[in-house]
Design a protein around this nucleic acid. Structure first.
Lengths: 196, 196
DNA sequence: AGATAAAACTAATAAGTGTTAGTTTTACTA
DNA sequence: TAGTAAAACTAACACTTATTAGTTTTATCT
């Protein structure tokens, strides 16, 4: 009955993907059914297949979009010249930005990538591995320049990535806290430490 | 044919729960079927029901065991007298310990609690909320004692919890890195910062 | 208005789900 | 060795799943 309404700058497929991202975040990929997704859009499940290929394809689209966004941004940062701390800060702030403006997709990419099918699963993991390696390289450079303490760079990267990932819990406190404050507090904690 | 072998200090039910934790971690709760679980044990799916109540019950057991372990430990730390930094270090090290020795269950509790049914879901979330509140209180005390920088304590706790949660990625590098080194590097990063 | 293409619908399929009932095997005790 | 309880088995149930085929409605353009 009701038609699928395309978003302003996208196709109807994009509209479905967006709704799927929200649903997958709320219930998880496997626990979300096509009937439920169709329901949220206001249409029968089979109608979705006029616009998309399969349920798996939805997850693939979501995960790859996110992975690409991060890869592109990191490439930009890499080409810059400047202090390591500035680069790290830029990266941290980009993660925060993605968390605030592409929450559903990022959440799904972070939590549901395991449900990707081959070869998409391997591809996704490789891309993430490459992202981490580049980050480690940046931290290593910082250590060599004596700009950063001599800590295992893998641990530093792990700590940074995990911490920014935890930003997803902010959605709970979103109303009570100012975004800019959180941003600078976390940057300060991660880069300067918390002990006087 | 094959019988379910009880682990040394546990019932057969415990053995099933342990196998379930591993399976749920690998594939996710919803994507794991009782037939697959039974297969891993070497038994028919229906035979499991001689020992357990339901699939949901397995998830409940896993999540509640983990939640209790953390609650108990935090209560112990709270009763101590000493510097805030020492308490935080103890807590961080306990998270690391749990990650290393109860990896499967902790992973499942962290990733699959959404699949809990009411009222277990609400109970679990309340327990976690309470845990975080106590942590915030500890950090607040540290700030008042001027032992810790004046950063939003919620952000500090969020950063700490997220960072230690990221330890789950270690399983990948486990062989290449020494646990004690990782532990101290992360504690140093989180408490002292990484910038000279 | 008539034709065409897009996108909705209904109905059905084959496969997989957790779980139960009833039966048979296994292991231990008297 | 006979009897008993635990725990395995087979078979089936009722439901849900993603997806497809075929059909009808809707919107658009000539």
């Amino acid at each position: 009955m009701a038609k699928i309404i395309a978003s302003k700058n996208g196709t109807k497929k994009d509209a479905i993907i967006q709704k799927a991202a929200t649903l997958f975040r709320e219930k998880g990929f496997v626990a979300s059914s096509m009937r439920e997704l169709a329901d949220k859009i206001g249409v029968e499940a089979s109608s979705l297949y006029n616009h998309i290929g399969s349920k798996s394809e939805l997850l693939q689209s979501i995960c790859y979009k996110i992975a690409n966004d991060f890869t592109i941004h990191l490439n930009e940062v890499e080409t810059q010249k400047g202090r390591t701390a500035e680069k790290l800060e830029q990266i941290i702030r980009f993660h925060i930005h993605m968390m605030l403006h592409h929450y559903d997709e990022l959440f799904v990419a972070n939590h549901e990538w395991k449900q990707l099918q081959e070869p998409y699963l391997s591809n996704f993991l490789n891309q993430r591995k490459s992202y981490e390696s580049k980050l480690v390289a940046i931290v290593k450079t910082g250590i060599e320049c004596k700009e950063i303490k001599k800590i295992n760079p893998h641990v530093v990267v792990l700590t940074l990535l995990s911490a920014v990932r935890g930003l997803e819990f902010w959605q709970r406190h979103k109303k009570n806290m100012d975004t800019k404050d959180i941003e600078s507090d976390m940057v300060q904690h991660l880069l300067n430490g918390i002990i006087k």
